[in-house]
Design a protein around this nucleic acid. Structure first.
Lengths: 221, 221
DNA sequence: TAGATTGTTAATCGATTAACAATC
DNA sequence: TAGATTGTTAATCGATTAACAATC
């Protein structure tokens, strides 16, 4: 009967985690919702509401213990658990993520990377050998892979996702520019980079029009 | 006095754009909000409300003309305009984005890439030479750069963003894992990849706990 | 014209903010 | 104890959904 946590709250958790991690590294011991509010530019009320979704982490008259709260949120995010992760697609983006993401640091164990391009087979990326795509399903089954990172073109993404699900993957981090349709017990998080760039383009565009509308003085014709 | 468009609506525009593009490529001429609703798994009501934020694109009894709507949304997103774009940081991620994003296809003109690492200087990436970071500000000024893509470590991201703003950049696509503080007339879109991975981790973790709670039959002790 | 479907207003739902009693 | 600040309830605000009159 636990009340469902809203997407809005979940979306904010990683940011709290980041700020608390920084405070911890700076040696800050305690923080009140009001101080955190000023730091993060969100209301203190929202902070307290958000945290209370998961139980009382604070203490009246004191605030929150930074280290304790940091650990608690990390645990809510599941970062205290190990997750086996593979990358599907050893192209530019797949390689970049392997090298850049520092997966191990947060308990994500990167154990395999796959590609259809046989020129890449055997190449080492972050200490891991690129394997042929045909071995993917067997690998997932044998190694209890939790997360597959999809960095392949959208044309093959849907069918590959199907194969991953079939082999028992529990979550897909999807960089392909297409919506995946998977069973409800498989989690999907989309990173549609071009959508993000388009939003930026929208903001530039809107700003242009607002200023043009507000200040049509400049004799432009 | 134009009503401000909510973030929620803006966030959905790129997805509409994508689906309409696909319909257009398939040769579909018209679509009703109800058909689009089924396709995209959002309510028809929301679709009509969203579009109406920008004016009436449809026609009673007919629906929406796919090509017209596609073009209209593209123009709302500013994709009918050219945007000059540079990449700051020629590491794994910067190179991957340069090669992978197909910037030109949507009117983003990639003209420069910068790095502090002198070993990279002069190397060609997507036909563009890696330049030393010192040349960045002059380059922005001389080439009327609109967008800077920040793919550098978080330690230097804030100060580099400051320099970019000073040089007159209008928008920052920020991949550094830090919040930037820029004037209101500079647009920022954050892509915090680890936040995204953490959300995925949360979903796996929550699913585990729900199933554990719902089915404690499995004699695990 | 009759049927379909938009544009738009009204109703509902959910998320954010404000307020304050509980309590450290 | 007095002061501070949480946890939590109530009020407000905004976003989504439903309904339907307008109109193609």
């Amino acid at each position: 009967m636990e009340k469902e946590i809203s997407q809005a709250v979940i979306g904010r958790l990683p940011r709290y985690f980041r700020f608390l991690g920084e405070l911890k590294d700076q040696g800050v011991e305690r923080i009140s919702s009001q101080e955190l509010s000023r730091l993060m530019h969100v209301t203190a009320s929202q902070i307290r509401q958000d945290f209370n979704n998961f139980g009382g982490f604070g203490q009246q008259g004191y605030g929150y213990n930074v280290e304790y709260l940091y650990t608690a949120i990390g645990s809510i995010l599941g970062l205290d658990k190990k997750h086996h992760l593979i990358i599907i697609g050893a192209g530019n983006l797949g390689q970049a993520l392997a090298n850049y993401m520092n997966f191990e640091r947060r308990g994500f164990i990167f154990t395999g990377i796959f590609d259809i391009n046989e020129k890449l087979h055997g190449r080492m990326i972050r200490g891991i050998q690129v394997r042929p795509m045909e071995e993917m399903q067997a690998f997932v089954r044998e190694n209890d892979v939790d997360i597959a990172v999809l960095t392949i073109p959208k044309e093959s993404a849907v069918s590959t996702a199907g194969k991953l699900v079939e082999a028992g993957v529990r979550a897909i981090w999807n960089f392909a520019h297409v919506d995946l349709d998977v069973p409800a017990d498989v989690q999907v998080e989309n990173v549609h980079l071009s959508d993000s760039l388009f939003r930026l383009s929208y903001m530039i565009n809107r700003y242009d029009q607002e200023t043009k509308a507000a200040a049509p003085k400049k004799d432009s014709q």
